[in-house]
């Protein structure tokens, strides 16, 4: 195992520890910071398997933009009290479910890809030259329809959240309570 192997092990262990912290910590801001750590480790792994552009985009979009918004919202809500631990049923079910999914999925992986991932050989062939240009050509050329469909999926997700989160007036109440508080104009 060379230097690359050692770096991979450090990154992999780091990403697992950070990810576990995201679930286990009770303080929302600490969870968010740990999630940033996970993204960092993932982007390092992308670098190792030869996708520098993807690594940079991972840092920029997920760690840089999305998590900043998460933190922002957490701080605006000012959740100072740590969440109490609730009934452990969900906590027990989640790993079981994850293990079941993993057991179902892993046998169907193409063997070569798993081996390539284990040996950390940079992926060969057409995708090997995926800097920015190759990615752009693939994304906006061959996979254009998939790309657009994904954005539709995101739109549907946003609409769903809006519908779920919208506060409806209860039968007794007159007007819906303003989310903006007293200063809402």
């Amino acid at each position: 195992m060379g230097l690359v192997g050692v770096i991979f092990l450090v990154l992999a262990a780091g990403s697992i520890v950070f990810a576990a912290n995201v679930v286990l910590r009770r303080n929302p801001a600490a969870c968010a910071v740990n999630l940033v750590g996970t993204f960092f480790c993932l982007s390092g792994i992308y670098l190792l398997i030869g996708f520098p552009f993807l690594a940079a985009i991972q840092l920029m979009v997920y760690a840089g933009a999305i998590m900043v918004l998460f933190l922002f919202v957490i701080m605006l809500l000012d959740l100072r009290q740590e969440e109490p631990r609730n009934t452990p049923i969900g906590g027990l079910l989640a790993p079981l479910f994850a293990a079941a999914v993993l057991g179902l999925v892993v046998p169907f992986f193409p063997d070569a890809e798993v081996k390539a991932a284990m040996n950390l050989t940079p992926i060969q062939g057409e995708t090997a030259s995926w800097g920015g240009q190759g990615l752009a050509v693939a994304l906006f050329g061959r996979h254009m329809i998939v790309f657009e469909a994904t954005s539709l999926l995101l739109l549907a997700g946003i609409l769903g959240v809006v519908v779920l989160a919208k506060r409806r007036p209860r039968p007794g109440e007159d007007a819906p309570a303003s989310d903006l508080g007293e200063s809402g104009r």
Binding site: F53, A55, A56, I57, L59, A63, G64, G132
Partner: peptide, 9 residues
């Protein structure tokens, strides 16, 4: 080669 995305990140 990805200097600009790196800077933005």
């Amino acid at each position: 080669d990805v200097a600009v995305p790196f800077f933005l990140a």
